[in-house]
Amino acid sequence: MIRIVFQRRKCIGCNACVEQAPAHWVMSQKDGKSYLRKSVKKGEYYVKHISAPECEENLRAARYCPARIIRVQTF
């Protein structure tokens, strides 16, 4: 099982994740921060389960995130 965990509060709205994985990430036009599409809010984190083929682009998003608030976790 693979999931993305996103600490949205600390997002600086740079758009890097959207460039890497546009199917999963979108810039909110409301508050200028990134939003993890179809994720579930758990406390201050946003969580979403993904499949193996979706892993690579999200790992890139995590790597390029300057705020280091995207984690791709494998169980």
Partner: peptide, 9 residues
Amino acid sequence: VYNHDLALM
């Protein structure tokens, strides 16, 4: 400031 920042700005 990018386009997506305009509403917040």
